[in-house]
């Protein structure tokens, strides 16, 4: 069989786009639209599946860097985040870690950092913490935007920096 998922997606895409879609000539507009969007979702997967692991790992690395900077700023107030960072780093270093585990390790860091941002209200380090989060988020969000380029929402995708996960 064709073991690569890209081929599995490709055959579905061709069947839907070249056989099913032309046969729906007089169908309701929303039916045609949903088929186009389904094709777009399949096209997205086709392009991104081979890169997914690199993207997940890169995102986790960037959040570990953010978490490290937050922990340095907050010292003793960030014990929970330090513990989470150790766990997330272990996932990153584990070659057997699944994609879902990589994403969960990232999500846990994001949740801890957001909670610290919230609890820092009216504390002396609030301004510095907020600034640090905004600074570290810039590169992460640019990479996330690059990830979504196949969906077609970027006005000028060529202006985005080349992401780390792109070969």
């Amino acid at each position: 069989m064709n073991q690569d998922f890209e081929t599995q997606l490709q055959v579905v895409q061709r069947a839907l786009g070249e056989v099913v879609l032309p046969a729906l000539g007089n169908a309701d507009k929303h039916v045609i639209e949903q088929l186009h969007l389904s094709l777009a979702a399949i096209g997205f997967m086709q392009q991104r599946l081979p890169l997914a692991r690199r993207y997940y790992r890169g995102t986790l690395q960037r959040y570990l860097a953010m978490a490290g900077a937050v922990a340095t700023l907050l010292h003793a107030d960030a014990k929970g985040l330090e513990n989470q960072s150790k766990q997330s780093k272990a996932v990153l270093d584990d070659p057997a870690a699944s994609d879902a585990e990589l994403r969960a390790a990232t999500a846990a860091l994001r949740a801890q950092i957001a909670a610290l941002v919230e609890s820092s209200r009216d504390t002396p380090h609030e301004g510095a913490l907020d600034a640090l989060v905004l600074e570290h988020s810039e590169a992460i969000l640019l990479e996330d935007r690059s990830w979504c380029i196949p969906l077609g929402f970027e006005l000028r995708p060529e202006d985005l920096p080349k992401p780390d996960w792109q070969p």
């Binding site: 969007l37 996330d144 935007r145 979504c148 969906l151 929402f153």
Partner: peptide, 17 residues
């Protein structure tokens, strides 16, 4: 129309950025 909502959700990072 889950497929439509899923599609527009792909604009989320652009919006957050």
């Amino acid at each position: 129309q889950d497929v439509l909502l899923n599609h527009v959700a792909g604009m989320g990072y652009l919006a957050l950025s």
